[in-house]
Design a protein around this nucleic acid. Structure first.
Lengths: 252, 252
DNA sequence: GTCACCGTTTGATCCAGGTCAACGCGGGCC
DNA sequence: GGCCCGCGTTGACCTGGATCAAACGGTGAC
């Protein structure tokens, strides 16, 4: 829906015209941050051989919950949201993925989640059997995936604490700090957080409504903890104060 | 706290007098269900050599959030709760682990969670470097761990949906069904769910208070969906009806 | 047997956040 | 320029679940 000239993944034309697969991996900006860093320069050809570079248009869903799980993905540019739906439309976003993040582990035979591009996303797509074959060949790659899974599990536990036990104010403060800790390509080191997702997405990630997110941000602003630069960038004026709130110390 | 003759893990006397480590692994009831199944019968000696069998008394904490992460664990008997705390005492239980479950992945240098035995728990304890060494030797074992991590990630995403978007009634129904799907040693196939944890634990797992858990169970009972057998066993009279509620279809 | 204790249930009231509704604002389009 | 539309903000009110409080019931000690 939207974008007359569709870049739909399964329609075919979404393929990125990678000059040479080898060069694609060697030149990849995201590789240093990603699981692919486990593969040595000299073996990049083997990796590139099973990778397919794809570009996804904003708003486009490229993984559907319940669909047969045929691929793994590695984000190399842009931001993706992962979510689950209830039949009446209630939605829980379980994570935002940026460049360098790996996608496709939490899976049985079918995907247990959907994935949608927030902005223009570029990613490497791997057929599952091919990537699994590569794991046999490169144990360091498999080790890296295990490390990634552990990292995701840790983030998931933090999110469960947030969703189960934190107040709206604590949730928003936690969210801003977590976002700020990410390596965002092009981000000036410091306290300016860019939010490519809209308020609805933030609400669905934090288990709140859009109105509560908005009100809570307004209140943090009034309290001098943050400053807005448009609605998609927030400056953290008092990171320590936010940390105090996020960790549940905040009395107010 | 409690149990005059302490089986405290770090006090030493918690060690189980395993006749022979080799026999311990070969005879382990939990092995078929656990990540250890990846190690062939003939190599069990290598596994047993790095495993230490430990018994934990009910209520005893054997992993402390923030402590240096020195071990992995594999539960072979009993039930464990994994939780995170906020400074003011709010608690989120992020999972219950039973026989066959692996513990210790969601970790950086220090544990990101605490773990406490609910009933009498027996587990295999592995020093992290030793187990990691074993992974180099047995790729199938590492593969199994990755599979386990993926499985946990999937469960975590379901739990985020539950905590972020489900009503109390939906949460309790989901919980009972999830519990029922587990292979509980000694459980008669069917619809009798055993709940070794108390109501406070259930509340802290579902992001509810103990009162709401109790009231919700009472209401499910009144509606003829479940029957209580004591307070720690629940019979599912209408699993399909519970499923409808748990998945968010339930109008009532 | 009975007493005390602890976990559970039930009842009464409260409130954080949800719902419903209106308004503001910026960007694209004609 | 002016209109429209989608997102974000703000306001008024409502409610599901929290909080506070009391009663219940099973179990172990004596």
């Amino acid at each position: 829906m939207m974008m007359a000239r569709s870049n739909a993944l399964r329609d075919g034309p979404g393929r990125w015209p990678a000059a040479s697969p080898l060069n694609a991996c060697a030149a990849c900006d995201a590789r240093p941050f990603s699981v692919c860093s486990a593969i040595h320069e000299c073996d990049l050809g083997r990796l590139a051989a099973v990778a397919e570079i794809v570009e996804i248009a904003p708003g486009q869903t490229f993984v559907d919950e319940g669909e047969a799980a045929r691929h793994f993905f590695n984000i190399t540019r842009g931001t993706v949201k992962i979510f689950k739906l209830l039949p009446d439309g209630r939605r829980q976003i379980t994570g935002f993925l940026d460049a360098g993040d790996f996608l496709g582990l939490a899976v049985d035979r079918t995907y247990a989640f959907s994935a949608e591009a927030i902005d223009t996303v570029r990613l490497c797509r791997f057929e599952r059997p091919k990537l699994i074959g590569l794991l046999d060949e490169f144990p360091a790659f498999e080790r890296q995936l295990l490390k990634w899974a552990s990292h995701e599990l840790l983030a998931a536990q933090n999110q469960m604490l947030l969703l189960g036990r934190k107040t709206a104010r604590e949730r928003v403060a936690s969210f801003l700090l977590t976002r700020n800790r990410r390596r965002c390509p092009g981000r000036v080191a410091g306290t300016l957080v860019s939010l490519p997702m809209n308020r609805t997405d933030i609400g669905d990630y934090l288990g709140l409504t859009i109105e509560t997110v908005s009100r809570t941000i307004t209140r943090l602003k009034r309290d001098g903890l943050i400053r807005l630069h448009g609605s998609d960038a927030i400056e953290l004026l008092d990171p320590a104060g936010l940390e105090t709130i996020a960790e549940g110390f905040g009395a107010a």
